[in-house]
Write a protein that binds this DNA or RNA. Sequence first.
DNA 1: TGTACATCAGTGAACGCGCGTTCACTGATGTAC
DNA 2: TGTACATCAGTGAACGCGCGTTCACTGATGTAC
Lengths: 183, 183
Amino acid sequence: MKVSREQVAENRQKILCAAGRMFRARGFDSVTVAEIMKDAGLTHGAFYGYFKSKEDLIAQTLAHALTPAASDVDLLRYAAKYLSPDHRDNLEGGCPTAALCAEAFRQGPEAKAAMTEGLKQQIERLAQGAPGAKAAEKRRNAIGSWSAMVGAMMLSRLSDDPKLSEEVLAETRNWIRAQDKNR
Amino acid sequence: MKVSREQVAENRQKILCAAGRMFRARGFDSVTVAEIMKDAGLTHGAFYGYFKSKEDLIAQTLAHALTPAASDVDLLRYAAKYLSPDHRDNLEGGCPTAALCAEAFRQGPEAKAAMTEGLKQQIERLAQGAPGAKAAEKRRNAIGSWSAMVGAMMLSRLSDDPKLSEEVLAETRNWIRAQDKNR
DNA sequence: TGTACATCAGTGAACGCGCGTTCACTGATGTAC
DNA sequence: TGTACATCAGTGAACGCGCGTTCACTGATGTAC
């Protein structure tokens, strides 16, 4: 049965949000179109009214999930929150880059384009609140810190040893802070 | 037809190497058991004489690929080589952690255990050649630098903009070097 | 050392399941009068 | 404003393909005498 235009827009958001959560938690391949649609409150047949293919959904989900929320953040405060055990354990609500980048760079060109755009925005955003006298220095700090944050999050997640996992988070936090102090 | 014991041992290595290369290049899910066996010069039926399942192969391939080659490396020299465009473009021969960690942490417990063991060894190895007066400082530098290296490699790979990709590599290299100088 | 036989690595056809995708149909929406 | 009809979002059965896994069979290996 046909539904109202507002309902259609709402359903689209629901699908993108469900896909965002499930992809982050379980990766692109192991989540099925039918599961996503069920989570969004629809049946799988309706999917192709919204998206051209699963690949299309992946690209659009990435673009949707990577649109930044708040702006002007302090880099060190951001890093402290990012590199927390809470964030590590919150796969489905956490950073899409850390959850999906290894799979994303093997996806189609649209998905890569969305990731690239997200990366650009994130670097610019972090550079605003980064330490450093000149703009180039701020940008370098943003890039280095962001690499360390994403890397540390992934390493801490793959460790089955909780102590090592915490150590990676804590020492990377300290390391980024030390970098800052020395300037 | 039966083959000799040496042939069996050799075939096993061939399968593990082929799997290592193909998994790094294309991820776990999109590589099929049949493809790996073909690359190793066998047919898919022989697979289950060597491994219990595809999941088993994944865990053993990770353990195989993560056994470190050389020891006592200088951290800065290592970082310079690691963060090069050559390494970025050499997915199938490059670092297994950067290529597979996002997928690995969603795999079974054996795969995670192999990754954790590899991470421990890598941190200890890098700590030996890391700057710092005390052991704790060396270890912190190893962890922070390794996080930054892995993160930067993944970010540079997902960028479809070559300039941004090079910038991430170069600036993370500079950032790690700056961290060193300030001690 | 040579022969006879048991073992077992490898082959390739076949199975079964799950997933992406399609499609004929339904019935609520929204437009035209 | 009310009614009649065209539109089209959603449903659920069905399709087809690919992949992991199994299995009966083959024939070289390696052991026992």
